[in-house]
């Protein structure tokens, strides 16, 4: 059948890729028997199913595929980085610094960078999260790099 690289072809390929990773790891687990299933039974079954579904998706991809949706890659990168940096800063640097860095990194996903507006938003959010999470919910979260 005529196939070419399109959205569903790639989707099927992704299924195959993940299925092979799953199966590769699944062989480390004991399969057991149907009567007394081991920990490896379900992973193997699911891995094979995923591979089959991937092949089906690929075979029919020429008929089923639709165009790729437009994705805002800039937002994807900026927001993901923002969350990761927040995770890294939370413990050592405290909530306030982590919040400010998150707001600025998220703000980078806009075409126009507005440092003053983001600064105001960051300050407002610091205040709000202090009220909600620290004062009313009493969460033990470090606030500044030098506190407790």
């Amino acid at each position: 059948m005529y196939t070419r690289v399109n959205r569903d072809f790639l989707a099927g390929l992704a299924c195959l890729l993940i299925a092979s990773l799953v199966l590769w790891q699944a062989y480390a687990y004991d399969m057991g028997t149907l009567r007394n299933m081991g920990p490896g039974y379900l992973p193997r079954f699911l891995g094979i199913s995923l591979a089959v579904l991937g092949v089906i998706t690929m075979v029919f991809s020429a008929r089923t595929a639709m165009a790729f949706p437009s994705l805002n890659y800039r937002a994807l990168i900026c927001i993901t980085t923002g969350i990761v940096v927040f995770a890294l800063l939370m413990r050592p640097a405290g909530l306030f610094l982590a919040t400010i860095s998150l707001v600025y990194l998220c703000g980078l996903s806009e075409r126009r960078f507005q440092p003053v507006r983001l600064g105001m938003l960051a300050l407002a959010l610091c205040g709000m999260s202090y009220l909600v999470f620290i004062l009313s919910l009493n969460m033990p979260i470090r606030l500044f790099p030098w506190s407790f």
């Binding site: 969350i83 927040f86 998150l102 703000g107 507005q114 507006r117 938003l121 999260s129 979260i141």
Partner: peptide
């Protein structure tokens, strides 16, 4: 632009 950094912040906290 004001809404979404707030949403992300509330999600992570």
């Amino acid at each position: 632009p004001i809404l979404y950094p707030s949403i992300i912040l509330f999600i992570v906290i």
